[in-house]
Measured scan of single mutants.
Amino acid sequence: MAAGGDHGSPDSYRSPLASRYASPEMCFVFSDRYKFRTWRQLWLWLAEAEQTLGLPITDEQIQEMKSNLENIDFKMAAEEEKRLRHDVMAHVHTFGHCCPKAAGIIHLGATSCYVGDNTDLIILRNALDLLLPKLARVISRLADFAKERASLPTLGFTHFQPAQLTTVGKRCCLWIQDLCMDLQNLKRVRDDLRFRGVKGTTGTQASFLQLFEGDDHKVEQLDKMVTEKAGFKRAFIITGQTYTRKVDIEVLSVLASLGASVHKICTDIRLLANLKEMEEPFEKQQIGSSAMPYKRNPMRSERCCSLARHLMTLVMDPLQTASVQWFERTLDDSANRRICLAEAFLTADTILNTLQNISEGLVVYPKVIERRIRQELPFMATENIIMAMVKAGGSRQDCHEKIRVLSQQAASVVKQEGGDNDLIERIQVDAYFSPIHSQLDHLLDPSSFTGRASQQVQRFLEEEVYPLLKPYESVMKVKAELCL
């Protein structure tokens, strides 16, 4: 049975990233139509530049190519590739079939990587351009969430054990800070992308030097003109047959890092959902379990974690691919890159769409948070109580021993009897502590235990987050809708 299948058929496997999760716009960027249309555009740009620099290419040939950029006979191309065992030459023939007058000058002087690699770089750039505003929107939604809850005390956790208090907004800023680093890295790697350009079979530009009869300047002009037509500021000066596969490492490393950030955020949300302090959106008709109707599973956060793990592992592909590119190139890269580049971007696209949807509907339960604080705060307040007693004339050592005994009794009630923490009640009825009984409410005010959390939130948002989001103001209103 021949390899390949009808990918629109229910009898043929289709990647869930495309069929179930990723956005239509990201799927289109990695589609065959987008790819092969870009090949034709690159052939047109090459012909236009070659004509401008004096090669015998007519206006009629150029116009014929322009008129057929979208006229792609995919069936013919597939048949040609089956016959020739070469995808680029299959599309040269297919393009030439609908451009008979231009057929002889299509791909003039070029090698397969002229269309293959340059198209990949265009796709990487455009895919990054799709991700950047999506990530900015996630940051914006979380920034709104953090600002609104900047002063809401909550129990902090280290080692997932109760620690000092923080605020809900401050905790959210930990998430935002990681995503801001990801946004900066995505922008950097996007701006650092260079075009492969017009380089020939081993990167020496020998074929173009021959076409222009040894004119170095025209060869350099050709490279520059096509690079500018493709919208790049610069091209690699040095290439082998391909652009260095280190570029793929750079791009997928940034995406993998984004995956790590999203995994951490969504894990926190899942843990908070278990504590009943916070939940992701839950639709009115949504079913959490087929057997347990009360369940409210954090399905979206779980999906993000599941896909983020996949995204983090994909960076190993370009690392290994770059390491086995012998001399000017081997074909070890080809099949692998067809999979890992598309999957990385479709996965990143999915987790950003999902995280935006989550961040637009996060639900906080202040009463649950308050109750958990009441359970733990008495123990945390013991040092403040000791200091207040010393100020009232008591002995630190005597007070410490009193607190120690009462704390152990209260802990026994919590752990052995399943009761509430009654340390404060014990202190309130103990005559030894009568000098500070009137101060206990103040000493137990949760806001006095959150330090500068709310001020940190305000400063972080104003100095770091809002300036970073400013270039994306025009796209901030787009909502994230999930079908599944």
Rank of each mutant, 00 (worst) to 15 (best):
R137G: 15
R234K: 11
G418T: 03
G214M: 07
P467S: 11
E343F: 00
K224D: 15
L135A: 09
L252A: 14
L362D: 04
S290H: 01
E462V: 10
M312F: 05
D73N: 11
S23T: 06
E280Q: 01
T52D: 13
L275N: 09
F28C: 07
D445E: 13
S19M: 06
Q221L: 13
I176L: 14
Q439K: 11
K276Y: 08
D11A: 08
E250P: 07
G104V: 12
I436C: 06
S207G: 14
C99D: 00
C305N: 08
Q320L: 11
L142K: 08
N185T: 11
S448H: 15
K101T: 11
L128S: 11
P281E: 13
V429W: 11
E462M: 14
Q416T: 09
K246F: 03
F157Y: 10
E425P: 08
Q416M: 14
V390Y: 07
Q285I: 14
K35A: 09
I265K: 08
H400R: 03
F30S: 01
W175F: 00
E48I: 08
K284N: 13
P467W: 08
L346I: 15
F145K: 05
Q325H: 12
L152R: 05
W39C: 08
F282P: 00
F95V: 08
W39T: 09
N336A: 14
L193A: 11
T111R: 02
I176W: 02
N357D: 10
T204N: 11
Q41V: 09
V189S: 12
S151F: 09
R149D: 06
C305L: 03
L482V: 13
Y472S: 10
Y21E: 00
G200W: 01
S23Y: 08
K218Q: 11
D268W: 03
P378M: 03
Q428M: 12
I424W: 13
A78Y: 13
G54E: 13
H310V: 10
T52F: 07
L193P: 03
Y21G: 10
I351F: 06
T347V: 09
A18W: 10
P153H: 00
A146V: 07
N71T: 10
L362E: 07
G156E: 02
C340I: 10
D223I: 00
A344I: 05
L258Q: 08
E417W: 09
R37M: 15
L377C: 04
R374F: 07
G231M: 09
D117C: 11
K470P: 06
L443D: 01
T166S: 06
H217I: 13
G104T: 14
T347P: 12
N357E: 06
I386Y: 04
P378G: 04
F74C: 15
L271R: 02
Y243P: 10
L183P: 00
